[in-house]
């Protein structure tokens, strides 16, 4: 089919440069992506370097480096790191338990279904669920209080850093379970047997074989989890109502009303988020290349 077309072409218009008309087929998609994804994103980039009069300036970027903004970035990154690493660790242990831990098969099916639901159960309803659980009159808070443990007097607060982390974990670790389970399935029994056969212990197996093999998947999933909480707005907004100084919350407030009194700074703030996401993906690529030399 293709070769036939090429065969006909010289007869018709021998002198025209070759255009691959097949690209036309994907134009609607590219056009849409340009209009509603690329253009908006790059307009923020442009906006970050413009003042209110539309003149070029570095001021917006410079203004990012104030304690207030830097702290909000720091807090956002901390929440993302804690929930990414925590979610990855806990999710890994659970995935390990159902894939290789010798548990009954139905548990795995059940866990996969739960994880599919829980990883999608986020935003406002999730915040409500945690308020009902660990809020000031939440079920767990009340039960613990009746046992003589007042967690709010011990310093816990659902609407603060650790409360937010605990809430985010609800969608973080199920995502880890979903992504890492296939990788754990990929660990072949023969590798463990070969290791034992050569005199190696369980520790040798994990240290030299299983973990190195899993590293690329672990890195990529952790980065994914990081991005997952880094950009999260709905859950944090519904839970803390804006009392926590997270970057997405500040951007949201900036859109609602001019809280920063500086639109350009808002754009720079958003640009900073994209840069940090981009940097983490770049870091991921580098780590990935180093960890997966042995992969095709």
């Amino acid at each position: 089919m293709k070769s036939k077309q090429q065969g006909d072409a010289p007869l018709a218009r021998p002198s025209l440069p070759k255009i691959n008309w097949n690209w036309l087929g994907v134009m609607p998609f590219f056009l849409f992506a340009l209009l509603f994804l690329i253009l908006p994103a790059s307009s923020l980039f442009v906006g970050s370097f413009q003042d209110n009069q539309g003149q070029f300036t570095f001021n917006n970027i410079k203004n990012l480096f104030t304690p207030y903004i830097l702290n909000s970035y720091k807090l956002t990154i901390q929440v993302s790191l804690v929930t990414a690493v925590g979610g990855a660790l806990f999710g890994f242990l659970m995935a390990y338990a159902v894939t290789l831990g010798g548990l009954p098969r139905w548990l795995r099916t059940a866990l996969t279904t739960f994880s599919g639901v829980a990883s999608n159960f986020a935003g406002v309803p999730l915040a409500f669920a945690f308020i009902s659980t660990l809020g000031r009159v939440g079920l767990v808070t009340v039960i613990l209080k009746s046992l003589g443990i007042n967690i709010y007097q011990q310093g816990f607060n659902l609407y603060s850093f650790w409360g937010l982390c605990l809430t985010y974990m609800y969608f973080q670790f199920p995502l880890m379970v979903l992504i890492i389970s296939p990788s754990l399935d990929g660990l072949r029994r023969e590798w463990r047997e070969a290791c034992e056969n050569l005199g190696g212990s369980s520790w040798h197996y994990w240290r030299h074989v299983a973990l190195p093999i899993l590293t690329p998947a672990l890195i990529s999933t952790t980065i994914l989890l990081f991005g997952n909480s880094f950009g999260a707005y709905a859950t944090a907004y519904a839970l803390t109502g804006g009392s926590l100084n997270l970057v997405p919350i500040i951007i949201g407030a900036q859109i609602r009303g001019d809280v920063l009194h500086d639109t350009g700074l808002g754009y720079a703030l958003a640009l900073g988020m994209v840069v940090i996401m981009g940097a983490s993906i770049l870091g991921y690529t580098v780590l990935q290349n180093r960890a997966s030399r042995w992969l095709r």
Binding site: G199, P212, W294
Partner: peptide
């Protein structure tokens, strides 16, 4: 198995892919 000093070759090679 790791104290028997018996060498084994598997049908699927079972080489460690990361080494």
């Amino acid at each position: 198995p790791n104290q028997r000093n018996v060498g084994m070759v598997f049908q699927s090679y079972a080489l460690f892919p990361n080494m």
